[in-house]
Nucleic acid binder design. Structure first.
Lengths: 202, 202, 202, 202
DNA sequence: CGCTAACCGAGACGGTACGTCCCGTCTTTAC
DNA sequence: GTAAAGACGGGACGTACCGTCTCGGTTAGCG
């Protein structure tokens, strides 16, 4: 793959890159309804015909542009030496922050709309979220295994109960979930942390 | 006002009604991106020019059509003799069922997209959800007051943790929240119900 | 007829009159292309639906409005004691003046256009002009009979040669035929007036 | 310039040509009132949007289409060795025949109507006729100079008296001027042709 | 280091939907 | 009971993009 890509004309790679960027920016800015190849073209200075040369249509361009975001924040990114419960906290907090402000969050309404009617976008969207969720589920399971979290907790359900509120606030209300409330949410859903010696923690 | 409205030309009322219905159906079916006044016109047999006579543009029609859904399912609808916890269960279950299949749920992606860029739709959307959430918050608060729910639970946060998963499943994954899992979710978020002898709990 | 008209609702007669006036004014002002029932309605304050009650459509209204102009300037209007040649002069001069400025002249382009595609307007137009022309032809013939005009002149052709230039100037150039040139035109077409001794002519 | 024009996309030239033709045909057929870009599009198979790409609106298209008619029939076309009076006869006869049947004549009502309210059409119309008239005036003047025509004739006025009847017949009556009557008209307006010895005239 | 193949920009083209305006018909309301 | 008001279906307007296409002009990278 690396070889193959090395062979591609650098002009192509360059066009693809700037168009994808412009597409995301446009999507975040004007949404799906007013998203226009024309505007993308104007925004990045690549001719309309060139865009059509690389992507058959609007939706495919969007789907492809979104793929480039698929750089996970690193599953074990700063995993370091934290406890499983800390790991959960980290993931949820990261989610809350990402939903507060980021290109993905701004595109979210457009993505959801597009996903409802276009297979490629839908696949990207579901997989993207599935992978994020999986990390969370695993962290919770690890917490249970470590006795950090009560063992009658269903990790999958708990992950939903942790991620759901953040999504809800962003999409169904006028504001975002406050990252500082994350600890409170975790306590609510996973129960108070085991008292053993919480003060000795950090 | 009643008098005044009685005086309105019945044709107007009729046009408004069928167009609104068709608009919602169209929105649910093809989404916001392909929503077309032309299709709405074709679907309900009302001329395009008549539609424009009543609504200045596409988005205003959508916003207005959504308003007509604003008939709450009755806050104390079947309140009857149920316990507060039962009331919570009822509300969450109702939400889960509504999100499983209903015109509103089908329109949701379109609504979210439109809300991101159109004030009227946004206002409708936020208020609609706020009112549904408020009912849940109140039920939880009542449960706490009745000793039915632990008193360290924050009703607003708990309501999010209950509604969030349902929204999440619908919008971020390929399926819907199973209404049968509602009890499990409630137990997770609000804690096990106080059995005969709650002190024997854990 | 007088009886019949006496019976008609005075409001009807009033509506008909003001609408016809407004229609002519509108026609002269904006021409046939932009002539609009809506504007006529606005101009005279009579409701659109009322106009349609009296005239089936735009063209019929125009045709009818034009009919009301059919008040000939009086064939023997100021016939008085003038010579036949003077009578010719009078008629041609009258035509030149009418074409210089009058509501009919202003409507002329619209009439011609409408006449090309609508029988009623065409009939009105042709008859109107035929009757004006006939007066001229008769005056010329009278002049010939009186020895006032050379007898090898074809009255019909001469009438055309007299009226034609006036029409031409109005419709095909940027200005109108100067009424003061009428005498010159008559001399050209009908020959110099027989001076003292007509026998010296040819 | 020739080079530059050679570079223009042949598709453009092609579109322009067929649209102009269709526009004239449409104008002649249905007149100005019912002239529709849609019909022109249908008639020539060029898409409506393409037409709008080349002409901003209906009237501009009409004006431009008419310009293409501006190919004079050649002032000294078949001038050959004819006498000035023959030249006059030729021109008038040509006019009569053109007014009998030709695309221009069929468009005339529409042109006149449009000219009344649109500068471009008016300019075309007046210039077109001015140039035709000028040829006639010059021929008459030449005839006077050659002693072929009486020298008390005003060439401009005579030209009007010759062209006027033809225009009049076409626009104000139900038929056209018979080309065979042209000689008679010329004799009426310019006087009998000088017999054997023209020098004996006056 | 020059040739050739590919990409690029420009933009014409046939379409579709927009939102506007007016048509001519028809119904409802009010005087 | 008739006139005004105006809703209605319809159709053309001129605009904005769509996605397809054909052009020269440029540029990369192979020979």
């Amino acid at each position: 793959m690396t070889e193959a890509e090395d062979r591609t004309d650098p002009r192509i790679e360059r066009s693809r890159r700037v168009v994808r960027q412009a597409a995301l920016a446009e999507l975040a800015e004007v949404g799906y309804g007013r998203f226009t190849i024309e505007s993308v073209s104007a925004r990045c200075g690549v001719a309309r015909s060139t865009i059509y040369r690389h992507w058959p249509d609007k939706l495919t361009l969007i789907a492809d542009a979104l793929q480039t975001l698929n750089r996970q924040p690193g599953p074990a990114d700063a995993a370091g030496e934290t406890s499983p419960r800390q790991r959960v906290r980290q993931l949820v907090r990261h989610l809350a922050e990402a939903f507060r402000e980021s290109i993905v969050a701004d595109c979210l309404p457009a993505i959801i709309e597009a996903a409802a009617h276009h297979r490629d976008v839908r696949d990207f969207h579901h997989q993207y979220n599935a992978s994020r969720r999986r990390a969370l589920v695993e962290a919770i399971a690890a917490g249970i295994a470590a006795g950090d979290i009560a063992d009658d907790v269903d990790p999958a359900l708990a992950a939903l109960a942790l991620a759901g509120p953040i999504v809800y606030r962003r999409l169904m209300t006028g504001d975002s979930f406050d990252p500082n409330q994350v600890d409170q949410l975790i306590d609510l859903v996973l129960g108070e942390p085991p008292a053993r010696s919480p003060d000795t923690g950090c």
